[in-house]
Amino acid sequence: MLNIMVLVKLVPDVVEELEIASDGRSLDPASVRLILNERDEHALEEALLLKERHGGTVTVVALDVPEVDDVLFTALAKGADRAVKISGVEAGLSTWAIAGALAKALTSSGLVPVDLILTGVQAIDDLDGQTGPIVARLLELPYVGMVCRVEVDVEAHKAVVIREYAGGVTGTFEVSLPAVLGIQSAEKPPRYVPVAKVRAAMKTQQLESVPVPGQGESSSVEILQMAKLEVTGGAVMLEGSPEEIAERIWDLLKERGLV
């Protein structure tokens, strides 16, 4: 039996055209559609796989932000047992503030201890730190990141985890439980869940809500400015129909003797 917690975070979908707000230091909320951080999706998958292997429970925890209900119901539909929203935090872009709020709320609500806390190794907006290592330190638990495989020895209360390096090299680490793991990839692609099942979860299951006690943490990193990055470097743009573009590419390859 393993009790696993998965900390997830919503991030702007970068497929949308992001706009900078009039303060010049943040994103215009109207341009932002929040989606689940891709690495967190892998953390949830790994948690569900571990539950299938060892039995136990999976609790998914996220800050209460717009669109979070969809994400949490989807997690329940995939097989999570509990879904908890942490309310009362204005964290903005600070991962330090988010992780600080999570750690406080988890402790005060009695949601921890658990055997394992999984979270995505990083998110595209982790400006002042990553959630996993910050929460681990605040809860005084060991942390391993870049994890792509987890084997738990429930009896011995430890886990053997595989960490990914560059060029396909991996490292094996043993960690005492409870521990926090930053997941890079689950062992299998994250499962798909049909919308009908998510709707069913919305009807039959409940989200829990836990407030953050006291004052939140604030970041000691001041954002002076935020700007959309223009495409630089002067790539020559090929215009025309797909056929014309294909012809131009062929010509380029020929000119360079590549074909």
Binding site: V14, L18, V221, M226, A227, L229
Partner: peptide
């Protein structure tokens, strides 16, 4: 896609 200028 975005650059943030920050002062820690």
């Amino acid at each position: 896609k975005v650059e943030a200028t920050v002062a820690p």
